Simulated scan of single mutants.
Amino acid sequence: MNTLTKSPIFAANYKKDCMKRTIFFVFFASLVVLSIFAQNWDINTLHKINSWDGKFIRNYNKIISRTEPYIAIGVPVAMALAAWVKKDHELLKDAVYVGTSVAGAFVVTYGLKYLIDRERPFDRYPDRVHAYSHETSPSFPSGHTATAFALATSLCVKYPKWYVIGPSALWACSVGMSRMNEGVHYPSDVLAGAVIGAGCAVVNIYVNRWLNKWLFGN
Rank of each mutant, 00 (worst) to 15 (best):
K6P: 00
L112H: 03
V203L: 15
E182S: 02
A105H: 07
Y60N: 08
R128D: 02
Y159W: 13
K15V: 09
Y132H: 15
A105K: 06
A78L: 11
D17P: 00
P121S: 07
A11T: 11
S7A: 06
S154T: 00
S188H: 04
F56A: 12
V207C: 08
Y97D: 05
I196Q: 11
P167F: 10
P187A: 07
L46V: 07
L115D: 10
A192F: 00
N13T: 06
F106G: 01
S142V: 04
T147L: 01
S174V: 04
I116V: 15
I36S: 01
M79K: 05
G54T: 04
C173E: 02
G54N: 03
N2D: 13
R209S: 02
A83P: 13
V190F: 06
N61H: 06
F27R: 02
T136N: 11
E119S: 09
W84D: 13
E182D: 09
T109C: 13
V32H: 11
I36M: 10
K161E: 07
R179M: 06
C173D: 00
Y114H: 15
N204Y: 01
W210K: 15
F27W: 05
S178E: 03
I36W: 01
A103N: 03
R66C: 00
K48S: 10
V98K: 11
I63V: 13
Y70Q: 05
A29M: 12
D189C: 07
D127K: 01
A169E: 10
E90M: 11
W171N: 02
A172I: 00
S65Q: 06
R209P: 01
P76E: 03
G111H: 12
N61G: 14
H185I: 07
H130A: 03
A194P: 11
W84N: 07
I49T: 11
T45M: 09
K20T: 05
G143K: 07
P8R: 15
